[in-house]
Design a protein around this nucleic acid. Structure first.
Lengths: 214, 214
DNA sequence: AACAGAGCGGAACGATCCGTTCCACTGTTA
DNA sequence: TAACAGTGGAACGGATCGTTCCGCTCTGTT
């Protein structure tokens, strides 16, 4: 069931390979929820020991850096996908919707400062900025973006969406979509009669901060 | 220069009375910036010793509770002021602008959960909700608020504005005003041609998270 | 003039948390 | 069967923070 150089790995090797994924997934989930979470929380969520983490990453900073870099790459990737869309306005809104859904903002901006960035990250960040600028330019060209909106308004917009956070992840996604719709309507130069995406925020959905921590 | 029961206090007593204010101000500034800041940071910012704090509050929780309650009262106060404004839409927008400027949201919602609330706070919070509902109703009556907007959209809106945060406080206020303008335009049912307020966000204003902490 | 104590500064303490290391153990590979 | 990659988790050391405590100063009173 196992070979030295073959592709099919059994037993321990397969488990280890699977752990690579499991750990990254757990880290994403945990640090998305709380950028300052202890590393033990990642191990627990992944269902592995702490050693399994330290075998793969030199330390917490290493893990954070990789996570953030992944988010940055995702951002660039989504931007490039958007640029392939012929409709300028649809490219713009579609890009934002995907970035908001994937919570890329929390993975990048909110994790920044917790590690020393690599040069490659600097390059990727610059490229991300250029792509965003292109998308905004095209949105302006479409005539649907209000003329006084600038590239860095995207920063405000993404921050606003990332700030929406309720205990249930799926509900969080819905509320962020609603927030995004309001913001896009506000940034639009033509009246937008589409109804806000639903269900509207309700009483009790925001009191969770007031409730006792357990 | 001093009397036992007179209003004019000199020397030590006056200093103590002044410290009441100084400490509250420092606490507001510090916890607004970081809800989990150590209590020593408040003392340092106020320029007093830790004893001066513990003489006035039973503990950190006590201080946080008072701070939060003050914020809640401010919210109610601004809402009542707004209700005195005859123009329904102006009452709505004016209220939000004042609440955003005073950063009431950071003082209330972001501090919640760090202490056990009093019953009076519960009552005030309920009253705050009622007043907000009234303001939204009146905004709807004015015809300028899009019909599918609900009271609790205010929660999203305030969270979005509070999430805007750059090192310089005055700049933060400007950017929040811009964010608020976009959101209000998005929530408005009539096309709003007013230009977005304030210097637009610029390159470099959001990289501060990437820069090295010192 | 002397005293009692309010008010205060800040060191010290104890609890908690967290990143990292270390070691014993297990199943796999050669 | 011998070596070892991979792992779980206890243990360590450092840092942080809320709170207490002690000695000092200045004030209002006797």
């Amino acid at each position: 069931m196992s070979t030295t150089s073959g592709k099919t790995l059994g037993g321990r090797r397969a488990q280890a390979a699977r752990n690579d994924e499991v750990i990254l997934e757990a880290a994403r989930a945990v640090f998305l929820d709380d950028p300052k979470a202890p590393i033990a929380a990642v191990a627990e969520r992944a269902g592995v020991g702490i050693s399994a983490l330290y075998r793969r990453y030199a330390g917490k900073e290493d893990l954070l850096r990789q996570l953030c870099h992944d988010g940055l790459r995702r951002y660039v990737e989504e931007a490039e996908t958007a640029l392939a869309e012929p409709d300028d306005w649809a490219a713009f809104t579609g890009f934002l919707a995907r970035v908001v859904d994937a919570d890329v903002h929390s993975l990048t901006v909110h994790l920044a400062g917790t590690f020393t960035p690599t040069e490659e990250m600097g390059r990727d960040a610059m490229r991300a900025g250029e792509l965003a600028a292109t998308l905004v330019d095209r949105a302006h060209a479409s005539g649907r973006l209000r003329p006084d909106a600038v590239v860095h308004d995207l920063g405000l917009l993404l921050e606003a969406c990332a700030a929406v956070r309720v205990p249930d992840p799926e509900r969080t996604r819905q509320l962020r979509r609603r927030q995004l719709a309001v913001l896009l309507a506000g940034l639009s130069s033509v009246p937008d009669t589409d109804p806000l995406p639903g269900p509207a925020p309700a009483a009790g959905e925001f009191d969770w901060r007031w409730r006792r921590r357990e």
